[in-house]
């Protein structure tokens, strides 16, 4: 037996005709057989009713024969349909598991992103807390330290700090040198980073004042950390150059 013989004997493709057509042909063929039996009985001299009854009896149970023939003709098709059904089930199961795996992956990714976000937030809060932990520093002052020829008509002295300061709290301190005449309410700007001292200045005068001192430390941030004392020295117009030092 050649390979093609073997294949044609044991591996047969299902009949390409529609199932309904095959079933109809089987029924037609069996009905023909039953009719021929009946005709034969009539030719033998049986009366029509008896010929019909005898034909049916001789034929056997029609539905059983029909079912056997369908099993032969449609068996491979049914087997193939079962294989296809199993294939579809496996495919659907594969899709479901892929979807589940994908959603699980997304969930894990989301969890990882959430964890990273939390870590970043923690780090940021630590940075903020480190920043908060640092003492405030003086980042700018006007008039500048050591400035000469300062316009005596200047009405404000401004000190700007590295961070928001505690509101309504300051220590503009006098020294043994001249301290400007205070003309108004000392206050902070809205961001609490700049403190304004309203003054009236005299011409040709050297002013020396400090922001905080060893005994007065009310320039402090909102956590209560005080500014290291800073000396502010400047001279109004017409006066000799002055010296500026910070402690």
């Amino acid at each position: 037996m050649t390979i093609s013989d073997y294949l044609s004997t044991y591996i047969r493709l299902p009949d390409s005709r529609a199932t309904s057509v095959i079933k109809e042909e089987i029924r037609d063929e069996l009905e023909f057989h039953q009719a021929m039996l009946e005709e034969s009985n009539l030719r033998s001299g049986l009366p029509p009713d008896e010929a019909k009854r005898a034909a049916r009896e001789e034929f056997g149970v029609f539905e059983q024969v029909e079912k056997k023939c369908q099993s032969v003709q449609l068996g491979e098709r049914r087997a193939l349909q079962r294989i296809q059904a199993v294939g579809v089930l496996v495919f659907v199961a594969g899709l479901i598991s892929m979807a589940w795996w994908s959603s699980n992956l997304n969930r894990n990714q989301n969890a990882a992103v959430a964890k990273l976000t939390q870590t970043i937030q923690d780090l940021q809060s630590q940075i903020v807390s480190i920043s908060d932990a640092a003492a405030p520093t003086l980042v700018g002052v006007f008039p500048k330290v050591g400035a000469t020829e300062v316009d005596p008509s200047l009405t404000e002295i401004r000190a700007t700090f590295s961070k928001p300061m505690l509101d309504k709290s300051w220590s503009w301190c006098e020294t043994d040198k001249s301290f400007p005449e205070i003309t108004g309410q000392i206050h902070y700007t809205e961001d609490l980073k700049t403190c304004i001292l309203p003054v009236r200045l005299e011409p040709n005068t050297e002013y020396v004042l400090t922001l905080n001192s060893t005994s007065n430390q009310n320039f402090k941030d909102q956590n209560g950390q005080a500014l290291t004392p800073v000396e502010l020295v400047f001279k109004t117009a017409g006066s000799p150059l002055i010296r500026a030092n910070s402690h």
Partner: peptide, 28 residues
Amino acid sequence: TGSLYPALHRIERRGWITAEWGLSESNR
């Protein structure tokens, strides 16, 4: 008949016989 027709259909599927529809001697 319960043996004949399944056998006919089986050996037809095996390619040992072929089948075609026609008219019988009684014109069926």
